[in-house]
């Protein structure tokens, strides 16, 4: 008989159309040694369909523990997706980290107003990108209450 004790696998939805960035996110998670299952959506529409499919699951085990969201997604962009996520009861408290190449203050403001927990500007050096592993782990540890109170100042990483 196999042991009932298993390592909890964090289910992470990554909405990202750039293969190079998918590779880096995977690498950051592996380097951190975080037990996880990565669900990948290549555009906003795919992410939306997956989320809708998993929103009615009452035991909650199929829902994501964390959502990583690129802002500049084809078809349905990250902002529209984020607003949908926050309006859906099942995900209203799921931590969301926005990953983006944008340094536009407008984008940052929009992401935080729509309810992103963190805004991570994709760095152009490997070490800083690998830091994402730690940030993801800390966000997961923070649990469902992480930074979600309206008064809380969301964190911004550059």
């Amino acid at each position: 008989m196999t042991s009932k004790v298993t390592t909890y696998k964090n289910r992470i939805l990554l909405a990202e159309d750039n293969d190079g960035d998918v590779f880096l996110v995977r690498r950051a998670l592996e380097k951190r040694g975080l037990s996880h299952e990565l669900v990948l959506a290549h555009n906003g529409e795919e992410a939306l369909l997956w989320l809708d499919h998993h929103s009615g699951d009452h035991n909650g085990s199929a829902r994501p523990d964390l959502i990583l969201l690129d802002l500049n997604l084809p078809r349905v962009d990250g902002g529209q997706l984020l607003s949908h996520i926050r309006k859906t009861d099942a995900f209203s408290r799921t931590p969301v980290i926005v990953l983006t190449s944008s340094d536009s203050p407008k984008d940052r403001q929009m992401a935080l107003e729509l309810g992103a927990n963190l805004y991570f500007r994709k760095p152009t050096d490997l070490a800083s990108f690998m830091d994402l592993g730690r940030i993801i782990e800390e966000t997961l540890r923070g649990g469902p209450e992480f930074g979600l109170t309206p008064q809380a100042e969301p964190q911004v990483h550059y």
């Binding site: 750039n18 960035d21 880096l24 500049n72 190449s101 944008s102 050096d125 490997l126």
Partner: peptide, 21 residues
């Protein structure tokens, strides 16, 4: 301009990090 810089930066990131790796 903002979008152009965004996409150029993404390409730059891919190039630079691949070289590091």
């Amino acid at each position: 301009l903002q979008s152009a810089v965004h996409d150029l930066r993404a390409a730059q990131r891919r190039t630079a990090i691949s070289a590091e790796l």
